[in-house]
Write a protein that binds this DNA or RNA. Structure first.
Lengths: 217, 217, 217, 217
DNA sequence: TATGAATGAGTCTTCATTCAT
DNA sequence: GATGAATGAAGACTCATTCAT
């Protein structure tokens, strides 16, 4: 997703080619810098330096730092709707589908550093940029939640899953979300067996979720 | 925890009393402002205004904005070790103890806005302030994790709980953590039945956690 | 009108004294600089240097350069209403009063460089600062025009003056206005006998150009 | 004087024709923009946009913004020498000639917005561009003044006019100059009967303000 | 000739910090 | 201790000018 920018492979780009690449180059560099320092502490000049141009060039493409920031988030975000949809066609039981969906989400959220970083920016800057929060909810969070509810309902209809959790789909993805947040906070310092965590998540979830198992809680 | 600051209850404070209160007043105001805007975008003068003093006064008590920020986090944090310990004495089964621990945590993390806000600051500013991350891990996260492991071990030893999740204690608190993060992001916009969520969390967790229930997932 | 600013006569001013003086010092310096370069080409830093402080200090007293500019004009302007009024009490014929009024105006507009400079700023920057134009019309131009009309009416009523010019009071001050503009444009380069010009203005005004008409002026 | 620039009358201009028109197009656009904002606040790009070309094109024809500005003033100015000369041949009394000259000047200065605008630019930017002031004096002001002196002398020699004002020819055109300046400052806001003003100017000039003196104008 | 991407010096404005009172 | 005037370094943004195409 993150295009490598400075690839001077061919090195000789025409002006026109260069120009077409610029916005993406800037957005990629901006993303890195904004993640590193947050919105306020990132200097436009740092972004420029990162791209290999000067301050002025940034302003050729983006009118203000705020606009650049919002474009950066938009550029870096991927629609979860797509992921959800791409899992949609599979056949199988509801739990198989949940397993499959969570697998895709782990690939997406946990293994892709960029998606963690987007989450960080939304948490950190959301108050100042309500638009990105709204957009994120619409394009990322809600489609996912909707799909989970759908699957629980499907499973419940088939007598496979309890219907108790329809109101709380967040529970299904909570371990992933938590892992993501912890990795945002502790970064490399976290030493965790991700494979094991993924398996344990699924195991714990489905044990709890399956019908015919009564909690005494 | 958050001392009510401007409580002019007695109203007539001697200079000496005033003086003693100042640092706490400043830290409380600083916390509010830092949460609102983040570290970089908060002006020392705003904090001062919030306390009802002038810029200079802040510097009487705190040498730099950075030092003030770190003190602010420290001041606002409560040791989870205490919570953990306060639950420690209870008798009962392991699952009862887990239930009880989680209850305390919900009261603490979910119902106390301040604790959500600390988490936000740590996510947003952790990279620039590694000390607060380290401290948070030591005083908040680790004691909690340790206690959870302890309880799972206790339950496993008693044949009550599976031992499968000893390596992944985060799973136990994941729904709470997730709820907290979502409330940070979406604030008031979130319309969720918290009571129901707490119950569903415990239910799902214990169903999965109890021994003698094999997941087929 | 233009207070000498840097008068280090006493040299040791207390902070409080200094503070009280600052706004006027800044406004005086700003006036000089704005006149020299115009609004856009004047740098706030130049004004600061002129006062002997740094850029930041200007912003302690004036929020923006625009606000400073408008304050500068206001500070430098004197109400013509006062001049008009101060001539008001004189007794004598209408032409004597006109003569007297014009005398005061010459002292004010021609001999006081500052008033020429205000006119220049209003011509140059009026389009960008409609407020100063409006204010100038209200406080300077209109009172003067009104007074002239009054005097012509008075003279006409007494059979002393023609009533033909009531609709065109600008004619009465035109030579003064013209002299002022020429001095703005040509500055020192203008070599003119001002005393003679004043006399000729009055004479021409009262008696006209044609021979065989003797002025009693 | 102001050539209509974008006149797409013929619409199909050859490249060569286009090229030949460019400088004039640019100068016309530059004039409009410089009048609107002043020298410093006018952006080269605005001028370009006004012409319908891009920044670079301006620099094909004019090396710097300063050079462009000076060329703009030169381009927009008309020699008053010509006007003066065109009135020169007429026969008649000196006062008839003055009347005729002033008529031509009113047509030129008052009714042609462009000439007012040049005056504004000279007042506003003269200090930064001494050349345009010098040029204006030489080509506009001095020829006019000289002619007035000539006419007064002629009239005095014929016993028609007083010789008192030979040293102060500015008095003759002062009302026109004043009207021009007022229109620059107050623009549309000015509500004045120009025809009446012109007549009153001539009348006052020739006959003076005092009653009992009948103008034969 | 015409373009417009890129530059970088320049300008307004902010704000942490100092210090005389 | 408290103040707030003053500082000056820093940062967002602008714009005249250049130059490869």
């Amino acid at each position: 997703m993150f295009k490598l920018c400075h690839s001077k492979a061919g090195k000789k780009l025409t002006r026109a080619e260069q120009k077409e690449l610029r916005p993406a180059q800037i957005l990629d560099a901006a993303f890195t810098e904004f993640v590193k320092n947050g919105y306020a502490a990132t200097r436009v000049e740092d972004i420029a330096k990162h791209v290999g141009v000067t301050k002025g060039t940034i302003y050729v493409y983006f009118e203000t730092k705020e606009i650049l920031f919002e474009a950066t988030i938009r550029h870096a975000s991927t629609s979860f709707a797509d992921i959800v949809k791409s899992e949609d066609t599979r056949t199988g039981t509801a739990s198989e589908k949940i397993r499959s969906l969570l697998g895709a989400l782990y690939d997406h959220l946990d293994e892709d550093r960029q998606n963690r970083e987007i989450l960080k920016l939304i948490i950190a800057e959301g108050q100042k940029f309500p638009d990105i929060v709204a957009r994120h909810e619409q394009c990322v969070f809600q489609p996912l939640i909707d799909r989970i509810i759908e699957l629980i309902k499907e499973g419940a209809a088939a007598g496979e899953l309890k219907s108790d959790y329809i109101a709380f789909p967040e529970l299904v993805i909570a371990p992933l979300m938590t892992l993501t947040v912890l990795r945002i906070i502790f970064e490399e310092a976290m030493d965790i067996d991700i494979k094991g965590y993924r398996a344990a998540h699924l195991d714990l979830l489905l044990n709890g979720l399956l019908a015919g198992k009564t909690g005494e809680g």
